[in-house]
Design a protein around this nucleic acid. Structure first.
Lengths: 200, 200
DNA sequence: GACGGTTACATACTCTGTGTACGTACACCG
DNA sequence: CGGTGTACGTACACAGAGTATGTAACCGTC
């Protein structure tokens, strides 16, 4: 384990965490483009120098925010899928957990709306290959292994499902407050039907 | 009809068209963010002043490019769907035409990859409501009217199909050259299956 | 407990690119 | 042929990202 941290290290970690917290809040509220590093710095009561000490660039700040949210998402969705009798039911449980998560401002807006805008599609997809796409591809491969899946082309079908779920995330994230639950349920119904079209 | 144009008007229209042409090419090749208005102006052998004379802003340039591509797409896809025996077969013909179009650099990259980055999701969606989404929603409503559709929630299911097709567009547009046709066909197969899940 | 080095920031500057205000030359119209 | 408007060109303002450098507090070492 890591040896006891010095006071300096603790302070440093605290400002870094504070920067990430305000960055998360402001990116979610006003979007990546409309939030300057100075905004983040001032709101955290430091200067832009501090930001550039802790992060390489504005994009790096977003990536740190983004990565944390995706890790949390992976953990929660995996937990929801655990202990289901077969791959298909696990996938459906995961789907419900995912759609719930999309109702939360930070995850829905940041990962599905702001993510591509901030990182560009290519880099955003690099991250997603580790997170959302990896989960989806895992479920589909498991379903295929259990003979539950119709013969659909392997990597492309996972990508399409990924984009379908991303679309759901965006629909939900763009709505406000109470509408979200209704949209979430509409998405759940429709997506289930569409995925059923892929069953054996 | 418009009266015969003066030489000045003709020149002006020509430079505007030239600006749109180089803008289309450069946005498709290097992306919206990495293309400056000066790049476009120089490549067209004018100055940024000319650009700002014809367009209100950089975003307005992109919108002009984008709108033209979407109009072309609407026309081509509608033509492909015309004269089919029922709504479902019309939709399938439209799907094939759409996926073909996504193989073309300008349409696929500009409308589905660069569009949201350049305009932001909200404004991009405003446009799409007039074009791709309108088409999709039209096909689904027709299918519903003909009793071909399972009871899926009306506006949301159209949006999900829209995002699904957008995902396909992105998958195809991000690939290079020869891969595209293979991916296009994989997408066609998978999407058909998923849409079949929505049939009555 | 003074001391040199390192860390965690602050300050000040550069650079790129958008947008804007204004200048100008040439085509049209009387 | 002189006035007017249009189609640009020129010059400048400004924001925000990134960089180079300064500095003060901390930390291990003797």
């Amino acid at each position: 384990m890591s040896r006891p941290k010095s006071r300096r290290e603790l302070y440093s970690e605290a400002t870094r965490a504070a920067l990430l917290e305000t960055a998360t809040a402001m990116f979610a509220e006003r979007g990546f483009a409309r939030t300057s590093l100075d905004d983040i710095a001032v709101a955290t009561q430091v200067t832009r120098g501090a930001v550039y000490h802790h992060f390489e660039s504005k994009q790096a700040v977003f990536e740190a925010v983004f990565d944390a949210l995706e890790q949390d998402m992976t953990a929660r969705v995996s937990a929801a899928a655990a202990g289901q009798p077969d791959a298909w039911q696990a996938a459906m449980a995961a789907l419900d957990a995912f759609l719930d998560l999309c109702c939360e401002d930070r995850y829905g807006r940041l990962c599905w709306l702001e993510g591509p805008l901030a990182l560009g599609w290519a880099r955003w997809m690099d991250y997603e290959k580790k997170y959302a796409f990896a989960l989806i591809d895992g479920f589909l491969q498991a379903a295929r292994a259990e003979g539950l899946l119709a013969p659909v082309p392997a990597p492309t079908s996972s990508e399409l499902v990924f984009h379908l779920l991303g679309g759901a995330g965006r629909i939900i994230a763009e709505a406000q407050g109470a509408d979200r639950r209704a949209l979430r349920d509409d998405c759940a119904v429709t997506i289930r039907r569409m995925l059923n079209g892929m069953r054996a």
